[in-house]
Simulated scan of single mutants.
Amino acid sequence: MTRPDLSDWQPRPLPQRAPLQGRYVRLEPLDPAVHGADLWQALQGAGADLLLWDYLPYGPFTERADFDAWLAANAASADPLFFAVIDLAGQRAVGLLSFLRLAPKDGCIEIGHIAFGGVMQRSPASTEAVFLLAELAMGTLGYRRLEWKCDARNARSMRAAERLGFVYEGTFRQHRVVKGRNRDSAWFAIIDADWPGCRAAFRRWLAPDNFDARGRQIRSLEQLREDGGQA
């Protein structure tokens, strides 16, 4: 394995609290006053994903006051740095996610705390939300490593990581205690050598002509990565 040349390496900038615009969604710095009502409905209301909270260290929330307090703590945090996902078609917040474990000296950053409402499941919105953060970290800011970690029992999250181009690197046994249960953590990452192919595939997959009249994908992200992002 060729070792990267770090003779000119400089610590990378921290991501800022600023909107990120996509074709299907816009990421906005989390603001409970602006996003709270929409997020309560998306994450706890009718049509919410019932499995959403199973592997997260918090939730579900039965009281709006507790939910609002959780949002306020997230909004005040710099690490994790939270963004609300705004569906451009409906102009409402439908989920949230964050950067975390920011290590600019090492060029390492993680995407996590993902809570997507039911409307985002298996949609371009969920893929684009992750892509916008990945592009900021790996493209604009020049980080070397983008991480994804999840409970090793969370088959949905592990499948999502692999679909999005993160490479499985191993499982940390007895890594954490979450909600009184043992958590073995599965680690995934995209490194800078992977990123050009991942970026090309993301862009090609998100293009309008990759979806048919019923909104179904024509080519998968995996297929596009294999083909270098080409049609």
Rank of each mutant, 00 (worst) to 15 (best):
L206D: 03
R176T: 08
L206Y: 02
G228C: 09
Q217P: 08
R173F: 06
R214P: 00
W187F: 10
R183W: 09
Q217R: 13
G228I: 06
R173I: 05
G180H: 13
A189M: 07
A213K: 06
I190S: 02
G228A: 13
R173A: 11
R203W: 00
Q174E: 11
L221T: 04
D192Y: 01
R173L: 14
H175V: 02
G229W: 09
Q174S: 14
A193H: 11
F172H: 12
R219P: 01
R176Y: 07
H175K: 08
D194M: 05
G197V: 02
R203C: 09
I191R: 01
A189K: 03
D192T: 04
A201W: 04
G229K: 11
L206Q: 04
D192R: 06
G215H: 02
E222R: 15
I190M: 03
C198N: 06
A200W: 00
A193C: 11
D209L: 01
R183E: 09
D212A: 10
E226C: 07
G215W: 03
I191E: 01
D212E: 10
N182D: 08
S220C: 10
W195S: 02
R173N: 06
R214Q: 15
F172A: 14
G197T: 11
G180I: 09
Q223M: 07
I191F: 02
R214E: 15
R183N: 11
W187C: 10
A186W: 02
T171D: 12
I218L: 15
R199H: 07
L206A: 03
W205L: 03
D192F: 00
K179P: 15
L221C: 06
G180E: 11
I218F: 03
Q230P: 00
